[in-house]
Design a protein around this nucleic acid. Structure first.
Lengths: 244, 244
DNA sequence: TAAATAGTGTCTCTAAGACATTATTTG
DNA sequence: CAAATAATGTCTTAGAGACACTATTTA
């Protein structure tokens, strides 16, 4: 809109953050990194979402930046990945006007190789509490995490998302348990099985010895790149308010 | 992550674009602006989504930038507004690595005051074709528009979104027509009415003379800031593929 | 055998879909 | 009256929810 390609105005900082979820030890967990304790950095020592600045010289797209960050922290190449949204403003980063493009990843907990990769910060799985416990985090990451958990929970009501949190093969009881952990409430077994099996996205791959008295049938996804939408949600959803 | 606040690396361009929908003349329409024809600017003369660079000195947040752009082009203050996502990469803008934060707005067609505001570009409503007609647009705006239309159509299947496209008061036949225009297919009247009326978000405000033989009951929203989620979608949705 | 977990069957209920019918206005 | 549109009624159907029941394994 300048008429000539000046573009001399100040540019906001541009970062990409990734909310990485897994289910482990019967809990929903999110991967957080501890920020450097140097007082020259913002939020020294605080926990934050993994992420960082876009590197204009190596990143082709925002999604590439996200995958780069993901691989750095977890070693995982192809998890379920979707965009969550973006956050930007004058006061969220003390270093200046900044915007973050945030992605949302799901991975099976055994897919992660013992982290603590490139740089030396601590990296840890943190339990996501059922209540939105507003723990203190760097930047506006608590708000971002809350939104990610919202999105996860609401999509789990009517999609096959939890399949991306399990290693294959998995059993239907394992999958049901994963739904229950994320939703924080029990799910009826019979209805769950009919729903899952009639959606035609699971392939039987023989019985699994789950260490339980009776072995369960093992399944894998017919297509790891397909998210299934069930015809109805588990339970009707309440209406939501947007800021008008 | 630098250790000292250097931040001397190159920063991407940061813009905000707004996909503004309305329904007019029995069609879904989107507001597009014609870019300057100066050969110094990218995509001279092409149609683009309204938007522009974040102004670090006046914009508090990305949403403020979006509302500013929206007000500039339409004069409207408080439409339905939600974030659609963000797009960024090396080659979408010839001026350099750029990212766009994209918002999505719905407004009643009579709420728009005759546009062509601040700057002199042409501003026009364009019919959104039922088929994703890949018309040539500036930047990656055709892709963004396609995603916005997808999101609109899929949310219309199970929410009260179309209420934000009508001026109050409106009648149920008008609302039903709006659903049909967006979905591109007829909707059963009886089921539609039960669904709308039992969701308890419409308030009767007396009969309206719609120019039709029999006047229809007029309604307004109980809460203009509430989006209602119906318990089931109109029709089961197909599964979708994400890029793994 | 009992204990534990996997898997099935049955019945109810809610809300959408199809489609016929009635109601209210104008000319 | 007829024509047009608004509004309602009836029956079917898909799929979730609750919950009892059967099946298969180990110890």
């Amino acid at each position: 809109m300048t008429g000539k390609n000046e573009l001399t105005f100040e540019r906001p900082l541009t970062t990409v953050d990734v909310v990485i979820f897994t289910v482990r030890d019967d809990s929903l967990k999110v991967l957080l990194v501890k920020r450097s304790s140097s007082p020259d950095d913002p939020f020294p020592g605080a926990w934050a979402l993994p992420g960082g600045f876009v590197d204009v010289s190596i990143d082709e797209t925002l999604e590439h930046t996200a995958r780069r960050k993901l691989a750095e922290k977890t070693g995982v190449q192809s998890p379920y990945l979707e965009q969550l949204g973006s956050w930007g403003g004058k006061s969220r980063d003390p270093r200046g006007w900044s915007s973050s493009h945030v992605f949302f990843a799901l991975l099976p907990s055994d897919a992660i190789r013992p982290v603590a990769g490139g740089n030396a910060e601590a990296v840890n799985w943190h339990v996501v509490p059922v209540q939105p416990t507003r723990k203190r985090m760097a930047f506006d990451h608590a708000e971002i995490l809350a939104k990610a958990v919202d999105r996860l929970r609401s999509k789990v009501e009517y999609t096959s998302l939890p399949t991306f949190l399990l290693a294959e093969p998995f059993s239907l009881p394992q999958l049901q348990k994963t739904y229950e952990i994320i939703l924080g409430r029990p799910v009826d077994k019979s209805g769950f099985r009919t729903r899952a099996l009639s959606a035609d996205f699971l392939i039987e791959v023989g019985e699994m010895d789950v260490g339980a008295p009776r072995p369960a049938m093992g399944y894998r996804l017919a297509d790891r790149n397909r998210l299934v939408y069930f015809p109805r949600a588990f339970s009707p959803r309440a209406s939501s308010t947007f800021d008008g």
